[in-house]
Amino acid sequence: MTKEDTSEGAVIFEEPVKKTENYFSELAAVDVSNMIDKKNGYSYLSWAYAQDQLKRKHPTAQIITKRFPDPELGGVLVPYMRTSLGYFVEVEVIIDGVSVSEPFPVLDYRNKPIAKPTTFDINNSIQRAKVKSIAGHGLGLYIYAGEDLPIDESKIENQSQQGYQQQYQQVPQQQPMQHQPMIISPQQQQQLKDIAVQIANLTLGTGATQEAVVEQMKQIYERHKLTANMAQELADVKITEMNQELKAILDSRMNPQHQQVPQQNQPIPLFSEPGAPLQNVI
């Protein structure tokens, strides 16, 4: 940073202001739960809310929509990129000199690639890429926690077949096979994840990194034996158990005589379900 001395024409060099505050922790601590919209089982943070919160905290933040040359238009720069795999957009967000760039495929409302997108489709994907780039700086990042965790479909199928064989051996041949319980709904998955996020944040306390929150959530999933194909009845039981755990943590915070939440006994699962992590939202 420089400043010119108009009296003598000299240039005075000043030391840059050192920032002591962690901007990522500041943005990650913003509660956006009341700004989340849900559609088709997925949770979304509106780009308008994300940009509003970002600019309130960091007015000088830069949001840049990348442009690419289109060969069919003679190299004219357009806000999308056409590839053999489909169409992509990219948005870069810069805060205090730190850049996060998020490429994003052009998808429909079912999160499937669009072969021939309209300008409206491209604009929607740009806004979603913008929200993800902002989340890369901490704001609303917990919404995407675990979305990149794969599910081993072959393992689930093999375990399911073993379960069916065991069940068939136990049921007499003259009796028809029992109906399988209904699988956990997207609404139950989201409710369980929301409770897990609150428990993780309260357990770790302020200043915890997003990686620590995600790791804590994985431990919560394992402790409560949450699976992607658990029965709806069992999911309701887990929701009740986790709400009780959350209430115990909050009660301990309100009671100064207790510094730690007493460890609860592990619940006995009602159903034997194949193990698989919950599918998190996009």
Rank of each mutant, 00 (worst) to 15 (best):
E21A: 12
L77K: 07
A50N: 00
P79T: 01
T60H: 08
L85N: 15
K57N: 15
T20R: 12
G74V: 05
F68D: 04
Y42P: 06
Y49H: 15
V32M: 01
E92I: 01
L27D: 03
P16K: 11
E72F: 10
K55Q: 08
E21K: 13
K38N: 11
Q53G: 06
K55D: 07
A48D: 15
E90C: 04
L73P: 11
I63K: 05
Y80I: 01
I95N: 03
I94W: 01
R67K: 14
V76G: 06
L54F: 02
P59S: 04
F24N: 04
L27S: 06
Y87P: 02
V89Q: 08
E26Y: 05
S84C: 11
N22L: 08
G97L: 06
N34W: 08
H58G: 09
G41A: 03
E90M: 03
S43F: 09
D96K: 12
E92F: 03
N40L: 11
E90T: 01
E92L: 03
P59R: 00
L27R: 05
P16H: 11
V32D: 01
V76S: 09
K38M: 11
Q62W: 07
S25C: 15
K57F: 13
N22R: 08
E102L: 02
A61N: 05
V30E: 06
I36Q: 07
V98H: 12
Y44R: 03
V98G: 08
V91S: 00
T20I: 11
E26G: 06
K38F: 12
A29S: 03
Y23M: 15
K19R: 13
L45I: 03
G74D: 05
T60I: 07
Q53D: 06
Y49M: 14
S43P: 09
I63M: 09
T20A: 10
V93E: 00
G74N: 04
T65S: 14
T65C: 13
L77D: 07
P59G: 04
V17K: 14
T20M: 11
V32A: 00
A50I: 01
I95P: 03
V78S: 00
L45N: 02
W47K: 10
K39G: 10
T65H: 14
A28W: 05
Q62F: 08
A28V: 08
L77T: 04
A61C: 04
Y87R: 05
L45T: 02
P79C: 01
T60V: 08
V76A: 09
I94V: 10
S46A: 05
P71D: 10
G74T: 01
V17F: 13
V78D: 03
S101T: 15
Y87V: 04
P69R: 00
F68I: 06
F24Q: 08
V100Q: 08
R56Y: 09
V89N: 05
L73D: 11
V78N: 00
V93F: 00
L54R: 00
E102S: 03
G41V: 03
D70T: 09
G86T: 04
L54K: 02
Y80S: 03
M81T: 13
Y80L: 04
P16R: 12
Y49R: 14
H58Q: 14
K39R: 11
Q53P: 05
P79A: 02
Q51L: 09
